[in-house]
Design a protein around this nucleic acid. Sequence first.
DNA 1: TAATCGTGGGT
DNA 2: TACCCAAGATT
Length: 377
Amino acid sequence: MIEWSPEKIKGFQKALLNWYDQNKRDLPWRVDHDPYHVWISEIMLQQTQVQTVIPYYQRFMKLFPTVGQLAKADESVLLKAWEGLGYYSRARHLQTAARQIVTDYGGQWPQTIDGLKSLSGVGPYTAGAIASIAFNQPVPAVDGNAFRVFSRLFKIDADIAKPQTRHLFEKVIQNVISRDRPGDFNQAIMDLGASYMSAKNPDTVHSPVKQFDQAYLDGEEDKYPVKSKKKRPVQVNYFGLIIHSSKGFLFEQRPSDGILSHFLMFPLIKADELDNQKRSVQKISSDEIIDTIFQSWVSTYQLQLIDLAFVDSQKVSHTFTHQKWQITLLEATLPSNSDLSYFPGKWVPQDQFSTIAFSKVQSKMWAAYQQKIPKTN
DNA sequence: TAATCGTGGGT
DNA sequence: TACCCAAGATT
């Protein structure tokens, strides 16, 4: 890693902020520096592209214009507004934090890094972003853009995939951030990282700070940032049960932890658990699958599925960050007066589907069941 | 610490 | 396809 003189730091700040003043992106959360606006946008933007967030942000602000209204909102309405954004715990943390602000902080925003980090779902990056943008504090906001930009400027070869590395970047940024315009400085880095200094096909030759980009000057920008590779998703096979009655379709409430926690979905059964119930390592036949599911539901939920059969369609496939699901659909009916006391779910009439937040994979199952055509992502 | 948590877009 | 990336936080 290289060092910069005070003169070089001043020159960098000037070049960066001059460029930002002329070329900053016109984004809906940049109309002011309201901490509520900054906060909502930063949470939505976590691991999510700007163009995806824009319509969600605009709808969100119409639904929940203030932190107080977010605090007292129905969680089902909130999750419906978040539908499709993913990482749904962000939405739950959002409301938890809104209630923290209203109750713990008397409606007044904490303005320190530690105070902001005490809010649910607000970590080091988001706290830095709010503190600098909304409260004009000279603190770093180390996101993926900052990692990429500063690793190239300073030729930092620390692995940005390791949590510890953030501290190193915070020290570097603390030394070069504009004391006069910290919020604009951090946002300028983000705009730079999203344009001339993007991850793929960077256009450094036209970058406003190319003369400060040591990796570029040395012809080594393709070496930065250093980032270790992620593991590939593991495949998990499921059977998905489309169960209907005159009351609608049977939805199962997923557990409070793990992927898609709390979501209502068509009941899913892990294929290997079904195999275990048969105490067999070998794959079981179609008849045995139906028989085993039927008996499992009788013993577990005291529910008797009628006409349980495979849906004549391709498997539903969906890939998450760490899991690849392959779902084989089955269909059954259940008497509408069935006792659901032992079942963690409820009947949902079809005309109420639009009021419930569907995960992407749930939407795929429903589409496959309705259309009986192949569905993949 | 390393693993986990969704989805859409691009190559 | 398979893989990577996108304004990260939590446990």
